[in-house]
Amino acid sequence: MAREVLLPRTLDDLWEIFHAEPELHLYAGGTDLLVKLRSQPPLPSGSPSPLVCLERIDGLKGIYEEDGLVCIRACTTHSEIMKDPVIRQHFPVLTKVLSLLGSPHIRNMGTIGGNICTASPAGDTLTPLYTLGASVEARSCDSGRLMPLKSFILGPGSVALQQGEILYGIWIKKDHDFNIHHFEKIGQRKALAIAIASMAALIKLSGEGTIEKIRLAWGSVAPTVAVSHTIEDALTGKPLTENVLRDAMPLVTDALSPIDDVRASAGYRRRVATNLLLRLLQYKDA
């Protein structure tokens, strides 16, 4: 049976819909949700719950600066974020990730909020946002709350949104001092590829080549993004050399818990994700 699609223009309209229609499906670009709905068997009878599209709510779009923080509102598309000069200047790791996400048409439709709320282990925006220490803001009709992205993501496909809440925006501090922004994704092809493994890295490298500060995050090799302070601590204060990285590699291997799927085996994922650390050598003399 045909499905109803509601297209609110303002947040107030949205809250009203929430009030009237507790059973509904939210979506922004629909690039995850519509794929999921399509794969579900049709309902034998009765109308399926309505879809509520967030894409046309202006209040959920755009990138703003406030007190040294940048807020990317949830329904901003990947293309818009990629083009944004502030993001490009302060968070090149995010720009890099987005240039590898899906394809131009997916980036034109898909949103950062959708990517986060899908909470896929392979969600590409999650690793850079973890390294950047991003927070998220959830809002409901009468309140808002801020929490670290790490605590928002509960597990594969699961986020800490309560009934009546939406993801409003992502907050990132501007004043970090990392001078190396790195991201690499291993997929089955170069575009439209779901990550087999990925790694984001932020490094503050001294003029002498010492790692003064480092943040690392791996995607697609654990139920959620994999991070490890042990590894970061082991590398901090050390020179960026092949030996130093190789010494840390066993720690990486231990920090991951990948699975087998149609794209790759767990064993391959683990070894490749570990190897990705060596790619940081390219910045040695940078």
Binding site: V35, S103, Q188, R189, K190, A191, L192, I194, V262, R263
Partner: peptide, 26 residues
């Protein structure tokens, strides 16, 4: 990349997300 995998008569590569054809980038 292309591999229509059939195991015991069933395939896991039943669509363009799992059956990998090259894109212009490849």
């Amino acid at each position: 990349s292309e591999d229509y995998k059939v195991a015991n008569g069933h395939t896991d590569t039943n669509n363009l997300a799992t059956y990998i054809i090259p894109t212009a980038m490849d």
